[in-house]
Design a protein around this nucleic acid. Structure first.
Lengths: 134, 134
DNA sequence: TTTATTAGGACCAAAAAGGTCTTAATAGAG
DNA sequence: CTCTATTAAGACCTTTTTGGTCCTAATAAA
């Protein structure tokens, strides 16, 4: 239908929550999941991945949890959404090189490309500081 | 992953093809499907639907086929994509009213709304005349 | 009446989305 | 050193969506 996935939405929710906490605080997965209304096991998956790509830091063991890896201002909606959903593309043909075979003459191709550029720009313009509720 | 569906892509291809033909010509489904490299049975489904929503006219029986229902300039990418994929929405919460329960306080909600507005504007800005190869 | 062609709907397979569960690793507290 | 709290990793599952086929009916022209 054309929208970000629920996982990406959940990721954004969680990140906004982290951004709303004191910068050096380590937040429990359980608490975060509960606060933003996401199944904890799924939130775990999502944040494991965000940790792997370097958007958050994770700490294991007792007193463990998550915190932002950068100041909120340095993390954009685009970062989060693409970390979870993969690169934003208006159409398959833009990412899967040669998957279409019509690029050479297709008049729509460059249009998709341009629009997707603008969309990414918009998402890049919004950062976690803008979204934090503190 | 965040892109229009293949059906929407196929629809656009077909519509561009129609726009590239003389205005009053009736184009065979089989020809159109072949020319733009789409399975004919699927193309049939897609154009049946485009006919139902009034973007194309269809003619049954011998010498039947399809033609645009309006001048190419009056049909936009947004028209076609939304006819097939449904309304464009950055996030579920924007269309499925009350499906989220967080709208009242969610700081991201209005952001999704704004960005999706811009995206729709961009898609509305491109019409079939721009895309026709004639 | 025959033939060409779209309409409609049932049906199906593959992929993606959304989510759970189990086990391992690890860090801190006693 | 051991126990406990907590994330990591990955297997696994269910539901929904996507992409597609096929058959039968309607219809228009020759």
């Amino acid at each position: 239908m054309f929208h970000i996935t629920r996982k990406a939405d959940y990721a954004v929710r969680g990140m906004v929550h982290l951004a709303s906490q004191p910068a050096d605080q380590i937040t429990l997965l359980a608490e975060m999941a509960m606060k933003v209304d996401v199944p904890q096991a799924l939130m775990a998956k999502i944040f494991q991945h965000l940790a792997k790509v370097g958007l958050v830091r994770s700490f294991r063991g007792a007193r463990g949890g998550f915190q932002l890896a950068k100041p909120p201002k340095g993390i954009t909606l685009l970062d989060i959404v693409e970390a979870i959903d993969g690169p934003i593309a208006m159409n398959r043909c833009i990412i899967e090189e040669g998957a279409c075979g019509r690029e050479s003459f297709c008049t729509v191709h460059p249009v998709w490309k341009k629009i997707q550029g603008k969309l990414r720009d918009e998402l890049r313009r919004v950062n976690l500081q803008d979204l934090a509720t503190r």
